[in-house]
């Protein structure tokens, strides 16, 4: 029997959040928000390629690439006026970076509930992050099926 192990980067992110007091978790989330990279130019000019995450309260758009080595790349954009949303998607983008298709699909759907943010930002808001992860996985499944 094998026990599931969270990919290293996601596990580290979870540990970093859980090590902090609830209030300080917001500060870390803000750091993630500030680290969200700009969209690669090829997508910045093609908003049609991006998928809106309807479950999020602020406009956030994601696009998932799967390269020839089956490595997943998650790109996203969200307005500066929506730091919580930016933080969520930045956590996923950093946590999933470099993972293979199978590794991403294996990430538990409730990962967002496990990083100690439900108390800090409210369960309602966390749903946006759960939806981002769900849509990321769906895009991957569509791409590998194509």
């Amino acid at each position: 029997m094998t026990t599931y192990q969270l990919p290293v980067a996601l596990a580290q992110i979870r540990e970093d959040f859980l090590d902090l007091e609830v209030k300080d978790r917001l500060v870390l989330l803000l750091e993630f928000a500030n680290e969200l990279p700009e969209l690669p130019e090829r997508y910045a000019e093609h908003p049609d390629l991006l998928e809106r995450v309807e479950e999020c309260q602020s406009p956030v758009y994601i696009f998932v690439e799967v390269d020839a080595d089956q490595i997943v790349h998650l790109h996203a954009t969200a307005p500066m006026q929506a730091p919580t949303t930016r933080g969520f998607v930045s956590i996923l983008a950093q946590g999933l970076a470099g993972l293979t298709v199978d590794e991403v699909l294996d990430v538990p759907d409730d990962f967002p509930d496990s990083i100690g943010l439900t108390e800090a930002v409210s369960p309602l808001r966390i749903r946006g992050m759960t939806a981002m992860l769900g849509r990321t996985k769906r895009q991957i499944r569509e791409k590998i099926a194509a």
């Binding site: 917001l26 803000l30 928000a33 500066m80 919580t84 933080g87 409210s122 309602l124």
Partner: peptide, 19 residues
């Protein structure tokens, strides 16, 4: 947005989150 206050707010303002 629960983090907006942290990105900048009116000088001296305190934050109260509805949730």
């Amino acid at each position: 947005d629960v983090l907006l206050y942290e990105t900048g707010h009116i000088p001296g303002a305190v934050k109260i989150d509805w949730h």
